[in-house]
Design a protein around this nucleic acid. Structure first.
Length: 580
RNA sequence: GCGCUCGUAGCUCAGUGGAUAGAGCAUCAGCUUGCGGAGCUGAGGGUCGUAGGUUCGAGUCCUAUCGAGCGCGCCA
């Protein structure tokens, strides 16, 4: 940049070129040097000169007053290929050692308070493999945001509203099994929940609360079975190493009057009105009946904030609709001091974005990628098991649970290991597989393949590199050599320098993940870093008694690579084993 | 019908408007007096769905179109 300025100052280039963006990027092939600069191409129009002429001037300027460039080539249509002196690269090794576990951390976020809500599965079933993707993605994103200097609150919203029809149906299903176990007259509710876990809940209820509740109303069963289900969900998520700071109850906002308060506020602001469904919109039979009674629902003016249509806030029978609690919940998060709200939702929530953004705007807040509130949708993951798609619905009783996926993958990878070790490995593999793909792309998760081929799993490839380094380091330690060297300029081998550059990419990758939430890049990075280490290891023998200085420098580089791998694993929520 | 997402190697998928589009798996051929061979080296494999457009330059941005998935309730 200063080189460009100098050229402008000296009159060689017109001032307009300062408006052109200056970019320096990695190169794809080694012969293109360490970094490439396309400025000459970008600036050619502004300068009114051919790109190669600009490039030549820039090259001369950079070489004349720089101590870090070894060589600069002008290539192709006008790329500047910058080659750094080895010392300029190797000097970063001690900095990585000094950073240690903090490698990759930045202060991009300046401690800004962010709320990230994810998973938030209704408390009427265990965590499924479908929600597992959201769990792994949300958790990894939080880890990345933490590392980037944001103050992150991880939140789980419990849909425990007593007016929820789904939850009432679930409670009635539990009640049926409970009464059945006691021999009381009962009938399975229409469209009730049939999964095995429903009977589990009723049995747990018998254990915990005793046999005297057969005549309790649905409310009682809803509260009791919710609590049991939430405990189970929490356990499922912990098996995947996903933990939350806050488990927030929807019902608590109804109880405290917060929901009613926010509804009143919207009415006062003129954001809501009483009325019947607009003409020309289809209504079903039940609704016709209700409307004919002459009662009116309260509508939110969401269409004036970008939504397709207005939404019912309070039903004509006086019960608040689901979105009322959502509005109140949004406001509640802002009231708790969060500056930005992120909501991670599954692929069946596309239709949700418009109304939620509208609701947010009606509260006087901004929404969207740059706004105070943003919804991030992850795409479907399809599971193939025993050669056919695995169903994940809750009501057909055939649930594929996240917990089972973890234990299956763990058991397949290490059949002889103790259970705890299997669960650790299973969590590693499960998380890595979920995170390998961009959250915004559809993905297939082939269980048969993941279990059969687990030996050649990319997660083991990366972890193996870490274990290998640990082995080398302990071997070095036996010989009295620990990380830390006097002369890092001995690191001049192409693969040594390549490894250092790859380690230094980590903070850059973290920054990109924050920008577009593409945390899957870290799995790619982990694989690349592991490969770069294997390449180095293959050609550069680390421990050489006859070369004590070089050995010390290389041991230090090994430690730097270990730090880089461990930091990446930590961001992904994957373990960094010292032995495999 | 409307909206969102996706379409890249046999399969699953990476790819920051840049140079010869990459990885894993699968297939084939090699590498070990030595620090962990769960590794390394090499080969084959591509009309980036299709057609236009934007520009010095498009897998990437825009438009259209075809195909696949998901969503569109006074359910949550």
């Amino acid at each position: 940049e200063s080189a460009v300025k100098a050229l402008v100052d000296s009159g060689s280039l017109p001032a307009e070129v300062l408006e052109a963006p200056l970019e320096v990027s990695d190169t794809k092939t080694p012969e293109h040097g360490d970094f490439a600069c396309n400025f000459a191409l970008v600036a050619t129009k502004k300068a009114g000169m051919p790109p190669r002429a600009i490039g030549e001037m820039l090259r001369g300027q950079l070489l004349s007053n720089s101590e870090i460039f070894r060589e600069i080539d002008l290539a192709g249509p006008g790329f500047l290929n910058l080659k750094l002196k080895p010392e300029a690269i190797s000097q970063y090794v001690p900095r990585v050692l000094a950073a240690g576990d903090d490698l990759g951390k930045t202060d991009l976020g300046h401690g800004e308070k962010w709320n990230v809500e994810f998973v938030s599965v209704n408390p009427n079933g265990p965590i499924t493999v479908g929600s597992g993707r959201g769990a792994a993605f949300g958790d990894a994103l939080c880890r990345v945001l933490d590392a980037a200097g944001y103050c992150v609150g991880r939140e789980y919203y419990i849909n425990d509203g007593l007016n929820s029809q789904q939850m009432r149906l679930f409670a009635q299903s539990v009640r049926h099994y409970y009464r059945e176990a006691l021999g009381l007259p009962t009938e399975f509710p229409e469209k009730g929940y049939r999964g095995e876990y429903v009977a589990d809940v009723s049995r747990a209820l018998l254990d915990r609360a005793g046999q005297s509740h057969g005549d309790e109303p649905t409310d009682w069963f809803q509260k009791a079975s919710q609590d049991l289900m939430i405990d189970r969900q929490r356990g499922d998520l912990e098996a995947a190493r996903v933990v939350f700071d806050t488990w927030f109850s929807e019902q608590s906002m109804h109880d405290s009057g917060h929901v009613a308060q926010q509804i009143d506020r919207l009415k006062e602001k003129g954001e809501a009105y009483y009325g019947v469904r607009p003409e020309g919109v289809e209504t079903d039979a039940d609704e016709q009946e209700e409307v004919s009674v002459g009662k009116e629902a309260l509508w939110l003016r969401s269409s004036s904030y970008g939504d397709d249509k207005d939404r019912v806030l309070v039903r004509s029978d006086g019960r608040p609709a689901y979105i009322a609690a959502d509005v109140a919940y949004l406001q509640n998060k802002f009231d708790r001091g969060f500056q930005k709200l992120k909501l991670i939702l599954g692929p069946d929530h596309h239709g949700y974005i418009g109304r939620m953004y509208a609701a947010c705007r009606s509260l006087g807040h901004t929404a969207g990628h740059e706004g105070e509130f943003e919804i991030i949708i992850y795409q479907v993951v399809r599971f193939v098991k025993d050669g056919k798609p695995a169903p994940m619905r809750k009501r057909d009783g055939n649930i594929y649970e996240l917990r089972d996926l973890i234990s299956e993958l763990g058991a397949a990878s290490a059949p002889d290991a103790p259970l705890a070790e299997q669960m650790r490995i299973g969590a590693d593999v499960t998380r890595f597989f979920y995170l390998m793909r961009s959250h915004e792309t559809h993905m297939d998760f082939d269980i048969d393949l993941a279990t059969k081929q687990s030996d050649e799993n990319p997660v083991f490839y990366a972890q193996y590199a870490h274990a290998r380094i640990c082995s080398v380091l302990s071997k070095a330690a036996e010989a009295g050599i620990t990380p830390g060297a006097d002369n890092y300029s001995l690191l001049t081998h192409e693969r040594e320098l390549g490894l250092i550059k790859k380690i230094l990419d980590l903070p850059f990758e973290v920054g990109r993940c924050v920008a577009d939430y593409g945390v899957h890049r870290l799995t790619t990075y982990a694989t690349e870093l592991a490969r770069t280490y294997h390449h180095f290891y293959d050609q550069c023998r680390v421990i050489q008694p006859e070369e004590p200085e070089l050995t010390k420098a290389r041991v230090s580089l090994c430690e730097a690579a270990r730090i880089g791998l461990a930091a990446t694993f930590s961001l992904l929520g994957i373990s960094a084993p010292e032995r495999m």
